[in-house]
Design a protein around this nucleic acid. Structure first.
Lengths: 242, 242
DNA sequence: TCAAAAGTGTTCAAGTTACACCCATGT
DNA sequence: ACATGGGTGTAACTTGAACACTTTTGA
């Protein structure tokens, strides 16, 4: 019933234990034009075929979980080199009406460019504004909610802009990112002061004139200082949000 | 090869997907006599039989993951009514030399009384001082390290004493708990000030005279205020530790 | 010249840190 | 009377919160 090809020279113990279907679901956040988006897909298999869902599929025999996540994301959307982190394992016995499936949720943050929109659409996937999220199958709404909560917590402790913004970005953009994550207004003077005080931003000569006549200076992250800060956890602490 | 008893009226989809062994491992912290302890067991099955290990076993068909954790803890140690939380899913394909096993780690905090020591020993389990932790099998050292890190993070954001201390406790005890978790000295004057400022402790009439001649007042948590504080995440923030 | 977004400083309140001595009591 | 652990207060400093106006420039 369950094919078990000889995958290695590993000996087999535990022969009498039960086996389970194990899946991975990916929650991918992207930031573009001042809005937070998430990557969704219309489900291609029964049951619940055609309904909105996260990117997900089954883990293969002998496949490292992290690699399964990468493979599944690539197969479903074409996206590669996305750094995913494990979020949580969803293990209720009746969560999936198709069968008993244990699912491990992964999250990632991406900087989104125009071209990314059409690329994933070729796979039937779509970047949807967080605020316009449709209802999702199974417990995917719950997964999304947890992922957003984790993103908010993370944004308070780490300067996450690195992952969601292009290499060059302006302070108004960074502020909008934080406001999008917290769905809340943040005082711009205090925000600038705080963010700059961490000393991880480099001001560039160039200005972005696409948003205003005056133009806003571009900044970039100082990768070395950024990584040093990440190491001593908790040095970064954004108090401007509740 | 893998028995699949009809567990419900659920239809079966996904018939061609691979199945996996799924286990749960439990990291249980206990606090007693001013030291942090963890619950360990000498492994009873091959491979690695007889070596130190966390409490763990396999998830059954159709079993809710959280329930599996409870069952496994009870079967292996007799402990019941322990509130466990999921920590992380460990999914490297070669982590267990016995076979490919995906393991979900759970953690819990317990107040430890003298009687608990002998109870678990009847099952062959043992409360071991954190500082004297032996080398553990497979990736259980890694699980432990992650659990401790999470405990430290949690202790900074929540008044966790509730779970690790007896109902009545003294401030010196609470201080020692925090020092044990962070393996670091904390200024007692500042600690008292900060902890009391949260307004979740009730001072009792009674004193504990077992530790000193003067005696230290007992306190208890005010459960209502405690739960209110938990709700607005981040109200509690212990800045005294690095 | 004006509209639209970028950029800038100060004051007040709150919280954090560092630090040393007296208290109560059992033996 | 003394040894042991319990308990307390303050001053200097750092950080956070609230808040309004000037600058630049393309149209």
């Amino acid at each position: 019933m369950t094919p078990q090809p000889a995958e290695s020279v590993q000996k087999r113990y535990y022969q009498h234990s039960n086996k389970h279907l194990v899946a991975v679901d990916c929650i991918i956040f992207g930031f573009q034009n001042d809005v937070l988006k998430i990557l969704l897909l219309k489900r291609k298999v029964a049951p619940l075929k055609g309904q909105w869902s996260l990117i997900g599929s089954f883990v293969n025999t002998g496949e490292h979980l992290d690699n399964a996540a990468k493979r599944i994301l690539k197969e479903s959307t074409g996206l590669q080199n996305v750094f995913m982190e494990q979020l949580h394992c969803f293990g209720k016995s009746d969560r999936d009406p198709g069968d008993r499936v244990i699912s491990i949720a992964y999250t990632a943050l991406m900087r989104l460019e125009e071209s990314d929109e059409s690329k994933v659409e070729a796979f039937g996937a779509k970047w949807v504004e967080l605020k316009k999220k449709p209802d999702l199958v199974i417990d995917h709404n719950e997964m999304m909610a947890l992922a957003l909560k984790q993103l908010q917590r993370k944004a308070r402790l780490y300067p996450i802009g690195f992952e969601l913004l292009p290499k060059k970005f302006t302070l108004p953009q960074l502020l909008k990112l934080y406001q999008a994550i917290y769905q809340q207004k943040i005082d711009d003077r205090n925000f600038r002061k705080k963010i700059l005080s961490f000393g991880i931003l480099k001001k560039l000569e160039e200005k972005d004139k696409s948003e205003s006549k005056k133009g806003a200076f571009y900044y970039s992250f100082d990768k070395k200082k950024y990584e040093k800060m990440i190491k001593n956890e908790g040095r970064f602490f954004l108090t401007l949000v509740k």
